[in-house]
Nucleic acid binder design. Sequence first.
DNA 1: ATGGTCGTCACACGA
Length: 263
Amino acid sequence: MKIVTWNINGIKARIGNLLVWLKDSNPDIVCLQEIKSVDEQFPRSEIEALGYHVETHGQKGFNGVAILSKLRFDEVNRGLPGDDSDEQARFIEGVFSTDKGVLRVVSLYLPNGNPVDTEKFPYKLSWMARLEKWAGERLLLEEPLLLCGDYNVIPEPIDARNPEAWLGDALFQPETRQAFRRLLNLGFTEATRAVTDAPDTYTFWDYQAGAWQKNNGIRIDFLLMSPEAANRFSSASIEKHVRAWEKPSDHVPVAAELALQPA
DNA sequence: ATGGTCGTCACACGA
């Protein structure tokens, strides 16, 4: 089973690329971030025509996440628990049945947090604390669980082409990196780093200043696997070629292959 | 290089 995470940066601008990519890459489950669309305007019928079930958690203009799946959804949960006043659409969980039992997949869009001297940064850190709490509770179920998404975290200097340029950025603050390590240390395996120590595994290149042409990238999109998922994990890949397409997202798809079959 | 480029939505704002 191929599971992919991709921040598409606007579904209306990217539906053409998405449909081409779905046919080409043939994923079983896709976690999308930054759909920037309300649920009613998400182009679900074109995606359903390719054999996918579609579940969204959108909002007007910003943020928004979705899961596309060849497997039928047994259950869908929208919104990260822990703060009823949080209006931002950044979290959706799908539950599926496989030959090995339950599979849980989350599509998450972690807050950017910039600028760090505004309320945006503590919102990011509190969102990460809520995610850690939620993940710790889910791990008690001892099921295959994948937390997929745009984490807006540069975990280590090796994950940026120019780490010194990110020292003042919310994505690379010590508190941000520590919170990500705490999440990992609950018992998750991050798919890309499980298969390679290479520096050139970036998933995002800014539109500005020729970042793509200069390979001035950062690695911020991850699939975190529970022990039960990691035990069935075989490979990971970064579908970097998509960044060179016309009208690309600034992020590329990141994929993991697991030895699971639809029920 | 205190610039630069996008997407969404109608005016800046977020990234």
